[in-house]
């Protein structure tokens, strides 16, 4: 099968993660991974993003498949249950809104900018070396730190399940995947 341009989007995903180590403001670009799949599902009624364009999925496929970094075991049954998938979606969004709230507090002047990336919603990693000031409000940078935390956390989770189970195990509980499937279900009822 001949490769298409969109089979190389894993390079974009990898570049995104690397850029966050140099200038945190690049984290804003990650919003594309939120809006493109949503628009495709809302307008087109398909999971075209997952099926074709998801660079993260391709990255897991490549590392777990071609590079053999996956045990290729079946995922446990609970992990593909509706409870876990929708539960994780709700948890992920709760954490996402908490992050938006923290951003709001910085914009409102109620709290000051925290130059940390929070991994797995718990571990605060000092990240000041990727912050060189912003032309805009510090809140803009706070969102970048928060959003990069979301992206890094989900990548780490995806890598762990890639190693333990099949390469693209992340796709089973990916909140964007669950949400776009839900949108498609409602839309195509």
């Amino acid at each position: 099968m001949k490769k298409k341009w969109y089979d190389y989007l894993w390079i974009v995903s990898l570049t995104y993660l690397i850029l966050g180590f140099f200038n945190i403001l690049f984290a804003w670009l990650g919003l594309l991974c939120f809006f493109i799949p949503l628009l495709i599902s809302v307008i087109g009624g398909t999971k075209g993003y997952c099926n074709r364009y998801c660079g993260r999925g391709q990255l897991f496929s490549l590392l777990g498949g071609r590079f053999g970094l996956s045990r290729r075991h079946d995922v446990p049954r609970w992990m593909k249950s509706k409870w876990f998938r929708y539960g994780f979606l709700i948890f992920f969004f709760a954490m996402f809104f908490l992050m938006l709230w923290n951003t709001y507090l910085v914009f409102a002047g109620a709290s000051s900018l925290r130059q940390v990336v929070t991994l797995l919603w718990t571990f605060k990693l000092p990240w000041q070396w990727a912050y060189h000031g912003t032309l805009f409000h510090p809140g803009v940078a706070q969102f970048a730190f928060g959003f990069y935390s979301v992206m890094l956390t989900s990548t780490v989770l995806g890598l762990v399940t890639m190693v333990l189970f099949k390469p693209r195990s992340w796709c089973i509980y990916c909140p964007m995947g669950t949400m776009t499937q839900l949108i498609c279900k409602v839309r195509n009822r």
Partner: peptide
Amino acid sequence: RDCVACGC
């Protein structure tokens, strides 16, 4: 019932 439509 369990398919997540990822397209792999």
